[in-house]
Amino acid sequence: MKATAAPTNNGIKGIEDAFSAAKQRGRATLIPYICCGYDSPKKTVDILLAMQIGGADIIELGVPCSEPFADGDTNKESHKIAINNGTTGMRDCLRILETASLVEEYNFDVDNMCQDAAMSGANGFLMVGIEEGKQELDFNSICCKNNMSSIQLVRPGSSDRRIADLAGMASSFLYVVSSKGKTGARNALPKDLDDAVARVRAKTDLPLVVGFGISNPEMVKRVSNLSDGAVVGSFLTDCIMKNEGKVRDEDVILQKIAHLHRGTIQDIGAKNQASKLSQVPLHVKINSYINKSSMLRVRRCSSQLFRLATIHETVNARAA
């Protein structure tokens, strides 16, 4: 299948628009996550569409990885199933995302990957497993050059200095990890979450979203009142895993997203709101590059259908 035209892409602006639209409605953003290819390539497309219809502002889409060592049981299982059912790499994910549109031959060179992702409508990447220092700065530079957002993860144990560095590297928003440990639905959010978000807010004016463990509208509400968005992942995958088949999986997701969405309305007195929506990252060297033989785990974003979907995967860089 060859597409007639490449989808348009507005890069970082797409993310900015999502936050700005939510802000105008007095809401925080809702960012669901699903593993690409879980439980089948076709199903992923239906689920992503259901997420969008249900009210998702941004979608995070994981590229399955054989060694997801920061993930809990649910995500681990979904990665395994996706791989077993044929979604093993970036190329497969592109195919799923773009179903009836273009699929370019892909070189896993980071610069090329950014360009291809931009061509196909992505807005940014969320990298996991990248090395601090040169590697992450190089990656950031390439993203910046291609008008892709590179989304930084702030972990609970991060020092103030590290948070400041991450804030400097961000171009659109930062992802604050709610609690220590692996991904997975939890019963409650940590008591000191307010302080944790405030600590990051002190270093940046960009939007902050909170993820890890969020699994009901009440939790979304609490997060919405102290940040600019909530990421919901394992909970949704759990819902699909527990679905006994009387209702279609995509309908389950549609209903769950709509339900969670109610929690995004911010109360008067909501804290830590962003006062700017994008920035040119610090320390960016436009001409730097990542060693072609290097390998990165990347979450890729696509915004054409889904505003923003991020994928993470091990990109095996091979020279063209």
Partner: peptide, 21 residues
């Protein structure tokens, strides 16, 4: 193996082209 990232280090890894171990 081929160069890749496994368990926090960049090194040689026995992996598929897509990067799965």
């Amino acid at each position: 193996g081929t160069p890749g990232v496994l368990q926090g280090a960049m090194t040689y890894v026995i992996q598929e082209e897509s990067g799965q171990t």
